[in-house]
Design a protein around this nucleic acid. Structure first.
Lengths: 182, 182
DNA sequence: CGGCGCATGTAAGTAGTTACATGATTTC
DNA sequence: GAAATCATGTAACTACTTACATGCGCCG
């Protein structure tokens, strides 16, 4: 068995909230879910086909305008069962963070390496931008206490991502400050 | 062009420190570098072949015992150039963290979901264990101030991983504490 | 001399990215 | 009527995982 196919569960999870087209799902990966998972439409459409063959989803065709056909996918009862068991099953495998910057750092031998400062500064800029972006998203998507409990999981992970980014920025600042002056 | 092949740079980086066999490299992914990158020998051997064809590394054959041949790989001058330019080049793409637990959380609707508590507790256990492991590794590999500056990049990333794990554990504890009592 | 670790490879399959391809609808 | 966006698919390729396959060396 190769790596567990997580994309199928994401699709089931999204369809469990409301029926969507392949295009809608693709967009979801650009916005909402894009913070922590990516997929292109070329991966989504074949996956939808497979899920339907296996009976986890069905589709109905709706017509937009004159003749543009849209496939609106729905989750089935056994699809909901599969989704439920994935969520309930343990998650014993911790993710390896494949961070290219961290990888490069590993090969830096001394704190006098002339490349270090610029490298850290670049990452500081990038992660500060991301932090700002996440702060704005949290404020936009969950403006009130009530909205937080309404979609609790989504709130949790956004807030988690924000905290993680905050740590990263702080660490970069500390690392930069600790570099030798000349 | 598909995703940038980072494995080749890791191999070059390791060979830049000392000549190694494919087997040695494989082991490095189980220990040292395994905190933040994984690769199996089935991926490493073909990559070594390609790097040699392209002239970035060479190998010499050494005999162990009676007739067991070992290929000891060395980095070449152009291999060092390639490694250097990879490190110097910008790293503008932030890694998406594909964390399966976080993914599952996204689909939890309310903070009264009966599965939440057990899910968070399982992760708390796993991440606490990893934190402990990282603390031990940092203490083992870098026991003195002097040892930290000797292999600065390695020290930085271990210390970064430790801080990240520490944040994760704290966040899980807070999340657990914030769950409704009944 | 048996078992574990050293040592190197290939094969088959899944996951994921980039590119190719087509056409309809809406908006300006 | 042009451009952006909606909408769906396939093809080709790279990355990565799991399994298959083989043989030597060392230690007890």
């Amino acid at each position: 068995m190769a790596q567990k196919n997580k994309l199928q569960f994401i699709i089931l999870g999204l369809l469990n909230q409301q029926p969507l087209t392949g295009y809608d799902l693709t967009k979801a990966f650009d916005t909402e879910i894009g913070e922590f998972w990516q997929a292109q439409h070329s991966q989504i459409y074949p996956q939808l086909k497979r899920l339907e063959e296996q009976g986890y989803i069905t589709h109905e065709i709706t017509i937009s305008g004159e003749k543009l056909e849209k496939k609106l996918y729905h989750i089935t009862a056994i699809g909901q069962t599969l989704l439920g068991s994935w969520i309930s099953d343990g998650t014993p495998d911790l993710t390896a963070t494949k961070d290219e910057f961290i990888l490069k750092l590993y090969f830096i031998q001394t704190n006098r390496d002339p490349r270090l400062k610029a490298m850290v500064q670049e990452q500081l800029q990038l992660h500060t931008d991301k932090l700002t972006h996440l702060q704005q998203r949290l404020a936009t998507v969950f403006p009130t206490k009530a909205s937080q409990t309404a979609n609790y999981g989504h709130y949790l992970i956004l807030q988690h991502a924000l905290g993680r980014e905050d740590y990263y920025v702080n660490w970069l600042n500390q690392t930069l400050a600790a570099l030798p002056k000349r």
